[in-house]
């Protein structure tokens, strides 16, 4: 068995002295692990940093074997972010979330493209925190836990949608949710409008709280409802950076 695909490094665990078990998010084969001989050695370790884009070649005798990866670095995404605390924290969080959330060997081409888009945004887009929150929303959707933010769950209204029900994941209008607002999650406009409105730090925090709630409830339920520590650190750092 063998295939070639483009992939994004999610994690590399040392295996023995110099080898590593590397986990990639590939375009056509989903999250896939494989052994890389020399992957933890001095020369190759830089290639297998989370977020780096690689051209991967996987080989195994049987399809359900771990198999071996041979990877060539296509674009080093992690290096330019090393001295930028917030984008670096976001990169680590995104890779940790994908590593923990996605089942192995199931293709998610849209998520692969989305993660590449997020990595592009981290490199040169000031509005990358919004992109991150939207990316988590898309991740929820791809995993079957998408939120319905188009219409009010209570009244059917399509205007003034400012809350989300933490139970159903459906939008709730300001009028219908007024009595329950303490129990509802805020729905920031940038999440609802799909990118037309620029978001402030409060809105981004609300967006991450929204996605974090549903990630914990649905995706990380098997992990005791706990998101990866890298995501917690990113959210905490983002909050501190915006002075909250």
């Amino acid at each position: 068995m063998e295939w070639r695909d483009s992939g994004i490094v999610l994690a590399a665990r040392r295996h023995g002295e110099t080898s590593a078990v590397v986990s990639l998010l590939t375009e056509r084969h989903g999250r896939h692990a494989g052994l890389v001989r020399g992957g933890a050695g001095r020369r190759a370790r830089g290639v297998y940093q989370p977020g780096n884009e690689v051209a991967a070649h996987w080989r195994a005798r049987l399809v359900d074997h771990l198999g071996h990866f041979t990877c060539e670095l296509v674009r080093a995404r992690a290096g330019p972010l090393l001295d930028q605390p917030l984008p670096l924290a976001a990169l680590a969080a995104a890779c940790a979330v994908v590593e923990a959330a996605l089942p192995e060997r199931h293709p998610y081409p849209a998520l692969h493209a989305g993660l590449l888009g997020l990595l592009d945004a981290l490199a040169d887009d000031e509005r990358w925190p919004e992109t991150y929150a939207r990316w988590e929303l898309a991740l929820l959707g791809e995993l079957g836990f998408g939120l319905d933010l188009t219409v009010c769950a209570a009244s059917g209204a399509t205007e003034n949608l400012i809350y989300v029900s933490p139970r159903s994941g459906r939008a709730v209008s300001g009028e219908a949710g007024a009595r329950y607002r303490d129990r509802l999650l805020p729905l920031p406009p940038f999440v609802r409008d799909g990118g037309t409105a620029a978001a402030g730090s409060e809105e981004v925090a609300a967006g991450l709280k929204l996605t974090g709630w549903f990630l914990s409830r649905h995706v990380f339920a098997d992990h005791g409802g706990r998101a990866p520590a890298a995501r917690d650190r990113f959210v905490e750092r983002l909050g501190r950076a915006s002075g909250r």
Partner: peptide, 15 residues
């Protein structure tokens, strides 16, 4: 280290 984890640790220490 000049790795994602190494620099994440460095930023944490800076804080």
């Amino acid at each position: 280290s000049a790795t994602v984890d190494g620099q994440t640790t460095a930023h944490y220490l800076t804080d």
